[in-house]
């Protein structure tokens, strides 16, 4: 199931730059899994874990704030938290890359924080027609039109449970 999750994350990362808004994307694209040196979260230094956890938690906080601002019709708050979410996601990916995690592993760590830190339906921009959106999708803030149920996203992550980094 973890492999399925990784697959979805890579698909998301590849599909997004094809959009006309590609200028907002970071330039790097996920490399084929077979060519990447895999590093597990559990293998990271404590400082690297704290850095990743800090940013992952902050992304979740900003998603919650963005959704709340939307519900309240607060345009300024929506823009503020949307921007904060994007810049935090960029730093998260940079931190993950420095630590040696692949993009799909970085997504997995983020998903763990999402499961524990988020309640309620996710906004549609976090859901793709092919599965869960990865961090890079948050950075791009672009998603293809989809009819996927908002709750499917969290369910798909939960269903991938039981797999942890460093266990294979």
């Amino acid at each position: 199931m973890l492999n399925t999750l990784k697959y979805f994350a890579v698909i998301t990362a590849i599909s997004v730059p094809a959009a006309s808004h590609a200028q907002v994307m970071a330039p790097s694209i996920a490399q084929p899994q077979g060519q990447v040196v895999q590093a597990g979260y559990d293998d990271l230094k404590e400082t690297e874990k704290r850095r990743l956890d800090f940013y992952a938690q902050k992304i979740v906080i900003e998603i919650l704030a963005t959704v709340k601002a939307n519900e309240d019709g607060d345009t300024a708050g929506f823009n503020k938290h949307g921007n904060a979410m994007k810049s935090t996601a960029e730093r998260y990916l940079e931190a993950a890359e420095k630590a040696g995690l692949t993009e799909s592993e970085a997504d997995f760590v983020f998903h763990q924080h999402l499961i524990t830190g988020y309640e309620g339906p996710l906004p549609a921009f976090m859901v793709t027609s092919t599965g869960p959106a990865g961090i890079r999708a948050l950075i791009s803030l672009l998603v293809p039109e989809t009819s996927v149920s908002e709750t499917d996203y969290l369910d798909s992550i939960r269903n991938a449970g039981g797999d942890t980094f460093g266990s294979n």
Binding site: I14, S15, A19, S20, N70, T75, F78, F125
Partner: peptide, 27 residues
């Protein structure tokens, strides 16, 4: 996967304020 030309991408789909969000290259 659908081709880029045939996909109508939209920003922050499903959020009512989507049209107001204008994100710079660096946030």
């Amino acid at each position: 996967m659908r081709s880029a030309s045939s996909i109508a991408f939209r920003m922050l789909a499903g959020l009512g304020l989507a049209a107001t969000l204008s994100l710079p290259v660096s946030a």
